[in-house]
Each structure stands twice: as structure tokens, then as C-alpha cells.
Write a protein that binds this DNA or RNA. Structure first.
Lengths: 297, 297
DNA sequence: CCGAATCTCTGACCTGAGTCAGGTATCGGC
DNA sequence: GCCGATACCTGACTCAGGTCAGAGATTCGG
């Protein structure tokens, strides 16, 4: 069986098993969308927000809320600052109901886990962690973005903020590269998106005819551990390679230990300092294989 | 986060990701139940069978078939041997449609896999295999069954048939234990069920006040590799232990290499032959820890 | 202060999915 | 050849889930 077929097969099996579980433990009495809404409201939530998060039609959501209100599970009131927006909050009964649903769902999973040994349970959870990491990584798309655009600036601001925290000497924003230097043949800024949210970036900037430097490689906190840094680095190399760059340099700070490990394991070798940036305590370089190299394998 | 929460979290993530995929690649134009039916019919299938496999109401299934027939995707005719049963088969257009759905679904998964490296793909598939194995194992329930009941006899017949194949000298059914000896304090037959289908069995039979023997430990072909043999053995030990048995013996055939490995790794030690069965080329024994031992951890 | 935009709500409508109660044809056993 | 069981079909119904068009309240920008 090929890989695609194997994944499809797993999907079929998993959804079927999951269906049985949720049918038995959650789907009693209450429609699924109401149950989901109860969870999503949390203790309170404004309706506009709920609509976006659950992706529901405003009319439909309104009706669902009305239904929960009739059942005494939810109360709504106007937003204090914006009279158009309404706030939904769970009543005491609503909180009990949600806790009940929660307990039932936990019980279903708990029963399932009980039939496994401790080692098997750990194996299950570990395998789920791996799958999730890989699926998240596969969901991330990386594309060039104008360095002055909103998403790009948000990434760079987050990057700078983090360096300010991590460097004992702080970080001065003026060390950021000028957006104008990352266009056309002069360089590029790549932004990684997970479900339309920017979760990482990286740039290369030309230093000479066939030499460029990697700058501002950054991955947002919640997206770390996916292997996204490596992927960004690889995409930057491929992109630079396609613009006649044969040597990549970069400078980094001794405080950034994960980054240093990444560079080393990606084939970057230490070199003497190539510029005077105070943040470049260590410098590295790598010779690229050529524009037709396939890094995706 | 505790284990139950971790599993729930994975379920939520996975169904959401899966939902996006199937929405985008399968849910176009054709209702899900029709699509599923197209797949399930295969090239042909009798309606009775489809009803059971898909778990549908007969009226509903009939209507679905009528709809597919109107669309020219399915043809039905009477069963040659039984005029009550109808046979559904795909027309040329139906086969094209199914192939189209298949391609689209494959494409979705394929795109996802493409964004991973070869090693990551392998890791994903391996993790899915593990999860599936563990979930199947967790879905299996083991319970005592009267050795004369239909399910029990089916298992024992399958067990005997397999030994007949695997032993060079064949196997004589009269060597099977007498059902009457597996009741009350004299012994028990446990049957393992996966979703209501019997997929394995095992028995213990009393030989003396505190001695019993394990007999007829068997796992159906499709359920092998789940660790079900070990689980049956453990449940037999616990059950025997609860009936004042302190020593378990068993005899086995040199041809049953997996079984021998299982016994050895479960704490059974070789002993001289304790009976004259021609099939007991090797004999083992194990001392049980006591009736209150917890084997489930 | 006006007009456009935003937010919620209501009513009308639709589809998919499925249940339930019969009815008809056929079969298997006697 | 009759009777009960089996397999199917039809019609009537329910429910969840969701879309669409507008109305009414409120806010925002100029």
C-alpha cells in the first residue's frame, strides 16, 4: 500500500472510531453545534468573536444562542463599549451542563485508555504528538512577502522584541534590515503562515554578486518544535540559489543556542566576523550546491 | 496536561484538519452518503450486504440507490439465486465518478505529504500505524463465553483448522478440550471481541487443586500484531488466579514459534512433559503471584 | 449631524441524513 | 400450497445544520 493510501486508510479508521466515541458520550440529547457553542463561549465571549471562531452564519448563531437562552444555559447582554456587539455568558446551569459534557467526553477517552497498559498509553500519546507536529508543519505555507507589509512588520517586531528579552545587552530596532533592501534581486523576506496566521519569517540580503546573508530568522513561540526554522532556512537557501547566490553568510548571538545548533546541523561552518554588528558574536557561512538543488526531498 | 486531555486535544485537532481536507476535496457537488455508497458498492454488491456494511436504514438506502440510478451512476438487477435480493453495480459513468472522487481525495493527501520530507513522511505513517494498532487493541473486549456457544465454537474451529495447516502431522479435532470441562471452577473459555466480531480465544482447565493448564490460545489472522495474545494470556492468568490456581502449565508445538516466544517473555519456564498429548512437544509452567495481583498496569 | 459601515436578529427557505410504518415480492420449510 | 421470514420499496415525517435577504440598532468618519 502506498503512503497516500495508508494515510487515507488511517483517516477512515480514525474518524470511524472517533464517531463511535462521540456518538456514545457526547451526542446524547444535545445537538453537536449547541455543545460546541457551549464550549466555545467559555465563561463569556462576545458574539462577533464566536461567529468568527466557529465560522457560523450570523443568523444561525443568533438562533443557536436564542435556543440556549430558552434552555436557561446562556445569558446575553450588550457590550459595555460597543452597543452593537452582544456578550454571551454561561449561567450557573450552563456551566454545569458544560462540565457534564466535559466529564462524559473525558470518561469515554478514559475508558479507552484504561484498556491499555501504561507503556501503551505513553506510546499512543507520543505517536499523537508526532502526528500533530508533522501535520502542523505540513499545513504551514511559506511565501515571499513585501518587507513593509503588515504581516512582515508584525513578524519583525516580534523578532526584535524577543531579541531584546534574550540579549543581556538588549536589542536596538535600528539593527533591523531596511525593507527596501529585500526586493527584487537584492533579497527577499519569506513569511511562514499557519492557517493564515504569520508564525515565522526569514530573509536573505545580497552582500556581493554571489554572496548574501541570512537575516531575521524567527519562529513564533507556539510554532516552535515543528522543524519550521529548518524549513525556513532551506527555503531561503533555495530562493537565494535561484538568484545567483552561491555563498550564504550569517551572524548570530551566543545567546541563541537553538539557532546556532540549527545552523551547524544545516551545514554552516564558523568563519571570522564579516561585519561589525555588535549582535554578530558568531559568524557562519555555507556554500550552496547550485540553483537546481532539490532540498525538498 | 494529563493523558485524557492530551488525547482529546489530538482528536479535536485531527478532526478539524481532516474536515478541511474532505471539505475541500470530496464534499463538492455530491452528498457524502452518496459518495460513500459509490465507494462501498465497489464494482457490484448486493443491497442487503451494503445495508449491513454501511449501517443504513433499508428505506434510506433504497432511496439513495434510486437517486444514483436516476443520475445514471448505478444499475440494479435481481440476484440470480434469490429474487428478493437486489444487486447494485456501477455503470461506466459510475466508475468514472468514483475514480474521480478517489483521485480528488488522493490529491488532497498527496499535497499534504509533499510538504514533508521523505523521513517525515515515514515518521507520520509509522506513528499512524502505532496509533491504529493501539486503538484496535483498546477496542477489543475479552469476556468469558460458554464453550459450547456459537462464537466459542467458531473460534475453536478456526484454531483447529489453523493447527491442521501448520503442523506437519496435521491436527485431530478430538484433541480439543471438552466444553463441559470449562465451566464453573473447572476452567473457562475467554473470547476476545473486536466490534462484536470474535477475534481470539483462550482457555484454562483445572488439572489439580491449585494447578491448571492454558489451552487453545488463538488470535485470528487480521487481529495479529496487536498484542492480543499477550492480553488474552494475562486475562487468563488473572481469571485462573481468582479461582485458586497458583501454577499454570501449558504444552505447545515447536511449529508455533510466536506462541513460544510469547510464553517465554510472559514468564513461562520450560518443564518436562506433563501429559501425553502428541502435540505437546514443549511444556512450560509459571507460578502465579496471587489472586490480588494487578496485571492491568 | 449625515451617511456608510457594522453588528445582531428574525423570518423564510433549503438540503442532507435519517426514522418509521406499512406494503409487496420472494423464499424456505412443512 | 400455505405461512412465516426475509428483502426491498414507498410515502410521510423529523431534525440538524445552514443560507439568504432584509430590518433595526449602533457606531464611525468626515
Amino acid at each position: 500500500m502506498d503512503q497516500v493510501e495508508s494515510v487515507r486508510d488511517f483517516n477512515r479508521y480514525y474518524t470511524r472510531r472517533l464517531g463511535v466515541l462521540t456518538d456514545r458520550y457526547l451526542g446524547q440529547a444535545r445537538p453537536l453545534s449547541e455543545a460546541r457553542l457551549l464550549f466555545e463561549i467559555g465563561d463569556r465571549g462576545d458574539v462577533r468573536d464566536l461567529r468568527v471562531r466557529l465560522g457560523l452564519d450570523s443568523g444561525y448563531l443568533s438562533r443557536l444562542l436564542r435556543s440556549l437562552e430558552r434552555q436557561g444555559l446562556v445569558r446575553t447582554r450588550a457590550h459595555p463599549d460597543d452597543g452593537r456587539v452582544r456578550i454571551a455568558e454561561l449561567t450557573e446551569a450552563g456551566r454545569r451542563e458544560r462540565a457534564e459534557l466535559d466529564t462524559r467526553s473525558r470518561a469515554g477517552i478514559g475508558e479507552l485508555l484504561e484498556r491499555l497498559s501504561a507503556g501503551q498509553r505513553r506510546e499512543l500519546i507520543d505517536a499523537q504528538r508526532r502526528i500533530r507536529r508533522l501535520l502542523r508543519l505540513a499545513a504551514v505555507t511559506v511565501r515571499p512577502v513585501d518587507a513593509g507589509a503588515a504581516d512582515a512588520r508584525r513578524c519583525l517586531r516580534a523578532y526584535a522584541g524577543e531579541l531584546r528579552e534574550r540579549f543581556p545587552e538588549g536589542y536596538d530596532d535600528t539593527a533591523l534590515v531596511d525593507p527596501a533592501e529585500l526586493t527584487g534581486d537584492a533579497g527577499v523576506l519569506l513569511v511562514a503562515y499557519e492557517e493564515d496566521r504569520p508564525v515565522g519569517c526569514g530573509a536573505w540580503r545580497r552582500l556581493a554578486a554571489d554572496v548574501a546573508e541570512i537575516r531575521h530568522l524567527w519562529v513564533a513561540g507556539p510554532a516552535r518544535g515543528l522543524g519550521l526554522g529548518r524549513r525556513l532556512l532551506e527555503e531561503l537557501e533555495a530562493h537565494a540559489s535561484g538568484h545567483a547566490v552561491t555563498t550564504l553568510r550569517l551572524g548570530t548571538h551566543t545567546a541563541l543556542t537553538e539557532a546556532i545548533a540549527l545552523y551547524r546541523s544545516s551545514g554552516y561552518r564558523p568563519i571570522p566576523p564579516y561585519d561589525s554588528s555588535p549582535y554578530h558574536q558568531l559568524s557562519f557561512a555555507k556554500r550552496l550546491a547550485g540553483p537546481d538543488v532539490s532540498w525538498a526531498g
